[in-house]
Design a protein around this nucleic acid. Structure first.
Length: 474
DNA sequence: GCATGATCATGC
DNA sequence: GCATGATCATGC
């Protein structure tokens, strides 16, 4: 009885193969769909070429600029498969999932991921009954054949150059973090919070909203209806994968986690980081400095951040796991009464750049969607600065999509109206404001109206940081 | 003590 | 040389 669907499937694969051959008269090699190595070798034949060059002259763009276009051509015309959205890997017998993603070239020549990589829709109803080890997500994505292409504006998918193709699976350390991310997402759905999911909740694996006009809602088993979401590898993590695929893994960022031993007793990455700080809590900065190495300059403006990185076990400014997860570390000094001494700055924006952005793809939204790691130092009554506590945090969606979005739009509108010298102040919003952020007053940027004004940046208000730390930190 | 403007040390 | 995170300076 089970034989019929099985046969139908086999016949379908055979037919697809025949169609494939018809579409690919110039193809030199028929690969073995049951062998990962063969799939990889076949994929690598396309590197350095466009799909049109790889499949012959009859490359057809199914969807002009839209997501899925490249992946669909790759599957159907190059690999000759038509997997659709099945819960199993695309190459079932080989256990290999085929994934492609675009990269873009920065002004400095570096290639970076253009977006996150989606790993399949979240079925709110079904996922709550799953375990990680046997989850749909893991089953489908254990081993991935990546195909990376260079995205160039205005170019047809058939003509974008393929820059890398490799079989890939996460390292054991990374897989552990991904498993914890999966659990955090599923736990939130189990407690009826699918509508409150946020990318900032997790490190490498995110729950990203699908469909731009997200009026389309899905039911969740234990809460109100929620936006459709897919599991995805976050952009910052995809950038690390890209480094591996290109054989240019970033080596100057330091790893904080050293092997599986760190993960004893079910600890998560965040538990481990927090545990590193615990022995130092309450110590003065001098005492901490003495214990983690004395060669730091106490006058440097990143002195407290440098000490914090030393506590984690990193000597350089870059912490690998933080980079992979896009976590932003921020050090905060608090007065004895708990008020932060300073507002929190973010990178300066360009007037002309900001007015061209739309909110959903803005630099500010992307930054504030990140997970943050706060390291808080506090002055005691004697004026001694002591390590107070640390905390991972991400901004509530209501704040981001409410007040922050409003301030951002206000800023944009004022620049457009020729009021770039009169941007939202900290008294105008509960959460953030705009302030100069350059080398000095002479460090300027040109407005759309042609004026030169000191470079500006968004800052989180002192009062907001205070609330975040007091209400949500300890 | 707060709001806002200005600046500095670092690292790439 | 410049971007960045963080802090300093000033005026009220």
């Amino acid at each position: 009885m089970d034989i019929l669907p099985e046969m139908t499937h086999k016949i379908k694969i055979l037919l697809d193969g025949l169609i494939h051959i018809r579409h690919n008269p110039t193809r030199h090699m028929i690969y073995d769909q049951t062998d990962p190595k063969s799939i990889e070798e076949y994929a690598q034949r396309a590197v350095g070429r466009s799909l049109r060059e790889a499949v012959g002259t009859d490359c057809i763009t199914y969807k002009t600029p839209g997501k899925g276009g490249f992946g669909q051509i790759l599957e159907e015309m190059y690999f000759g498969i038509k997997p659709g959205n099945r819960p199993e890997p695309d190459f079932l017998a080989a256990g290999v999932e085929l994934k492609s993603f675009p990269v873009k070239r920065l002004k400095n020549g570096k290639l970076v991921a253009k977006e996150r990589v989606s790993l399949g829709m979240i079925d709110y109803g079904a996922v709550v009954d799953e375990e990680w080890e046997t989850s749909t997500l893991l089953k489908k994505n254990k081993l991935i054949q990546f195909v990376v292409y260079l995205h160039e504006e205005g170019r047809n998918y058939c003509d974008m150059k393929i820059v890398a193709a490799k079989l890939w699976k996460p390292s054991e350390e990374d897989l552990k973090i991904i498993a914890d991310d999966w659990s955090a997402i599923v736990e939130k759905i189990r407690s009826g919070g699918a509508h409150e999911l946020s990318e900032g909740d997790t490190l490498y694996l995110g729950a990203v909203t699908k469909a731009q006009n997200s009026r389309e809602m899905r039911t969740q088993p234990f809460g109100p209806s929620a936006k459709r979401r897919a599991f995805s590898l976050k952009q910052s993590y995809v950038n690390q994968i890209l480094g591996q695929l290109l054989g240019k893994e970033v080596t100057d960022a330091e790893s904080v986690i050293h092997g599986k031993a760190d993960y004893s007793q079910g600890r998560t990455f965040e538990d481990i980081v927090k545990a590193r700080f615990e022995p130092y809590i309450g110590m003065t900065v001098e005492q901490v400095h003495e214990r983690v190495g004395q060669d730091l300059n106490p006058k440097a403006k990143d002195y407290f951040a440098a000490v914090a990185r030393r506590i984690m076990g990193a000597r350089s400014r870059r912490v690998k796991e933080f980079e992979k997860a896009g976590i932003i570390m921020k050090t905060v000094r608090l007065r004895a009464n708990g008020t932060p001494k300073e507002a929190m700055s973010f990178p300066a924006f360009k007037f002309k750049g900001l007015v061209q952005e739309i909110w959903d793809e803005s630099a500010l939204k992307s930054t504030l969607e990140s997970r943050f790691f706060f390291v808080a130092w506090q002055y005691d009554e004697a004026g001694q600065l002591r390590l107070r506590n640390v905390k991972f945090w991400n901004m509530p969606v209501a704040d981001l999509e409410g007040e922050v979005k409003k301030t951002w739009e206000d800023t944009r509108n004022r620049i457009l109206a020729g009021r770039a010298d009169d941007l939202p102040k900290s008294t105008e919003s509960e959460i953030c404001h705009v302030r100069p952020h350059g080398m000095n007053a002479a460090d300027t940027d040109e407005t759309p109206g042609g004026r030169r004004l000191p470079k500006q940046a968004f800052w989180l208000n002192v009062s907001y940081i205070k609330d975040v730390l007091q209400n949500q930190m300890w």
